[in-house]
Amino acid sequence: MRFVFLICVVLVAFASNSILNRMAVGGGEIDAIVFALVRAFAGAVTLAVLVLIQRRGLPVLAPARIVGAGSLTVYLIGFSISYIQMDAGLGALILFGGVQVTMFAGALIGGERPPARRWIGAALALAGLAWLSWPSGAAALPAVAVIAMLAAAVGWGIYSLAGRRATYPMAETGANFIWSVPPLLLLTLLRPVQIDGVATTVTGIVLAVVAGGLTSGLGYALWYDVLPKLRGSTSALLQLTVPVIAMAAGVALLGEVITWRMVGAGAVTLGGIAYGLGLFQRRTGSSTS
């Protein structure tokens, strides 16, 4: 039961990141790259302090940081940029659909062979997300935002696959955040100055700090803690609940209107996940697959 609770906390943290990013960047409170930089810096400071309090070291020079920090940085940049133009629901579809493909591919390369029900469940969940998030009008999708979110999806998928080998989640996550700060700082300094650039507000900074220190820093450390106990395909499937959670949070916190399409699509998505995880079958033994 504790393990299930931890997974639920992680998924809520992931959904909160979408809401916070949307409020800050989409609301014009802060520049997208500055948001990513503050988010990374807050996560690095928070986790570094907690690790030092525990009298442990930060593995900043470990070879695994190349993949961990590199994929995290790609995710942070793409995620922030995409929400300048993209609707949160459509962004969630592209992000976690891309994560699903990336992690399934990684699992297959690693020798995992997901059962047929997991493939069927994933297809149902993706269909539900498509129904939930696809725009009702004929407006063209913003190409830059789509490319940025796809890059974020690949980055997060690789980051999650790498996390399955973590031995000290908090310290390794903290080291990843530390290494993500320099490239984000460099990108902030080198990015073109826009004539009508977004001014950084106190609200934007606060939202970025919360996203970095709480829902990202501690949330990702907890994710690295549960990942070794999950198969790659299972962890990919679980993350498809995040867009549904984010949509519900948008209704509760941002005053968005709930529709029958949201209810129906959410039911299809969650039903697909439940089927893929074997929750509709009688279990003869326990497993963390």
Score class of each variant (00 low, 15 high):
residue 147 I to L: 14
residue 194 Q to V: 04
residue 230 L to T: 07
residue 237 L to K: 11
residue 141 L to G: 07
residue 229 K to V: 00
residue 168 Y to P: 00
residue 214 L to I: 15
residue 229 K to N: 14
residue 151 A to N: 04
residue 199 A to Y: 03
residue 233 S to M: 04
residue 163 G to V: 02
residue 257 V to D: 12
residue 153 A to I: 06
residue 176 N to D: 15
residue 162 A to S: 13
residue 213 G to F: 07
residue 233 S to R: 04
residue 203 T to P: 00
residue 177 F to L: 02
residue 192 P to G: 03
residue 154 V to S: 00
residue 166 A to V: 13
residue 214 L to E: 08
residue 158 I to M: 07
residue 240 L to R: 04
residue 227 L to D: 02
residue 146 V to P: 09
residue 156 W to Q: 06
residue 155 G to L: 02
residue 140 A to P: 01
residue 236 A to V: 12
residue 146 V to Q: 10
residue 215 T to V: 10
residue 224 Y to M: 12
residue 225 D to L: 14
residue 248 A to V: 15
residue 145 A to I: 13
residue 161 L to V: 06
residue 251 V to R: 13
residue 144 V to I: 15
residue 171 A to I: 13
residue 140 A to F: 15
residue 166 A to R: 05
residue 211 A to W: 12
residue 202 V to A: 13
residue 245 I to S: 05
residue 222 L to K: 10
residue 167 T to V: 15
residue 256 E to W: 14
residue 189 L to D: 14
residue 214 L to M: 14
residue 189 L to K: 02
residue 232 G to T: 09
residue 193 V to F: 10
residue 218 L to C: 06
residue 253 L to V: 12
residue 251 V to W: 11
residue 150 L to A: 04
residue 238 L to Y: 11
residue 221 A to M: 12
residue 145 A to E: 10
residue 243 P to E: 06
residue 239 Q to H: 09
residue 184 L to G: 02
residue 206 V to Q: 06
residue 190 L to V: 12
residue 244 V to A: 08
residue 178 I to L: 14
residue 178 I to G: 03
residue 226 V to C: 01
residue 186 L to S: 04
residue 221 A to I: 05
residue 250 G to M: 12
residue 225 D to F: 14
residue 194 Q to N: 12
residue 164 R to K: 11
residue 188 T to H: 06
residue 152 A to Q: 01
residue 161 L to K: 08
residue 238 L to W: 11
residue 154 V to E: 05
residue 240 L to S: 03
residue 169 P to R: 09
residue 242 V to G: 06
residue 203 T to K: 08
residue 253 L to K: 06
residue 199 A to G: 00
residue 222 L to R: 01
residue 152 A to F: 05
residue 248 A to Q: 12
residue 240 L to M: 11
residue 213 G to I: 07
